[in-house]
């Protein structure tokens, strides 16, 4: 991406955005359907770190993210941001979902400028700053379109720009590229890293795609199947900026194998083997490396 240096617009306070998750349990549902989605989970995320939460579907990773966002309340324990308990949603914690939540009636520029409008910033000033962010995510020239006129990948870029305009202390992403086709997803991952190099905000990124987690993160947190607990905490030290060739590097494949092993063990413990695995004359042992995505 040939985005210009935006450091002036995106300058943020250093040393903020540290998240502390302390002995958190979260129960969801009512009455007989009530279950523990997250159980006694501890996690400290230092300021400016890019963390991926990796785990099978229904492992409580989105629930944990919702608790950090302030949309879900922890049943036990505490979630704090820079020492302050999280009480509800706040522009300091920008949240991006798998399916965009852009306002259909606002042009791209006004969607991005929404946070500033809520802060009472004047129209000319907020549009100027929004345009910088629109350009940063590579959508210069599209600012006067409506969301319905953009592709899925472009909509997610607008979504990212819209939360970044609030200078969030943390960026929370819940499988943001999960609904995109593979090529667009790769492009969006590179774009996200490109943007992140410039803003260096704390990122918590939920995914079930191992490649995605390892490619993006400083640190991958592998979670167990329900109730979600911490299974492994893997530092990812590949140098940045990262490129797609990394995905085939031996070190990358080694960590990926480790993750697959962890997740597969976790998966097999709770699930019946896949019908195809059971039918295979060689048994399930051969199917590891090829199964990159953990489907149900």
């Amino acid at each position: 991406m040939n985005a210009v240096n935006q450091s002036s617009a995106l300058a943020r306070e250093a040393g903020v955005g540290a998240i502390a998750v302390d002995a958190v349990s979260i129960a969801l549902g009512q009455g007989a359907d009530r279950f523990e989605a997250v159980q006694k989970l501890n996690l400290d995320i230092p300021s400016g770190q890019f963390v991926c939460l990796l785990g099978p579907s229904g492992c409580g990773k989105s629930t944990l993210l919702g608790a950090i966002a302030g949309h879900i309340r922890a049943t036990q324990g505490s979630v704090t941001l820079d020492g302050e308990p999280i009480k509800g949603p706040h522009p300091d914690r920008g949240l991006v979902f798998q399916h965009h939540t852009l306002f259909p009636w606002k042009k791209i520029i006004d969607n991005v400028a929404f946070g500033l409008k809520m802060k009472g910033v004047g129209k000319a000033e907020r549009r100027r700053r929004a345009l910088e962010l629109v350009k940063l995510v590579g959508l210069g020239g599209f600012e006067n379109r409506y969301p319905a006129q953009l592709s899925g990948g472009m909509q997610q870029r607008v979504e990212i720009a819209r939360v970044l305009i609030n200078h969030p202390r943390v960026l929370l992403m819940d499988e943001p590229f999960g609904a995109l086709d593979a090529l667009t997803r790769n492009m969006m991952q590179e774009l996200l890293l490109d943007v992140w190099e410039k803003i260096r905000t704390t990122v918590v990124f939920v995914t079930h795609d191992i490649d995605e987690a390892l490619f993006l993160a400083d640190r991958v947190i592998v979670m167990t199947h329900r109730p979600g607990r911490l299974l492994a905490d893997i530092p990812i030290d590949f140098p940045r900026p990262r490129h797609r060739e990394l995905l085939t590097a031996p070190e990358f494949v080694a960590i990926k194998r480790q993750c697959l092993h962890l997740l597969h063990g976790e998966h097999a413990q709770f699930k019946q083997p896949d019908p195809l695995e059971r039918l295979s004359p060689l048994g399930p042992s051969l199917i590891t490396e090829t199964q990159i995505h953990l489907s149900q």
Partner: peptide
């Protein structure tokens, strides 16, 4: 009105009056 849009507006810093003007009214137009 899509409740996700209301939640989004809230998390982007919108107060109830703004949610009414910026989300509910245009959505119902």
């Amino acid at each position: 009105v899509d409740p996700r849009l209301i939640a989004t507006a809230r998390s982007l810093g919108a107060k109830p009056v703004s949610i009414f003007i910026e989300v509910i009214l245009p959505s119902a137009t």
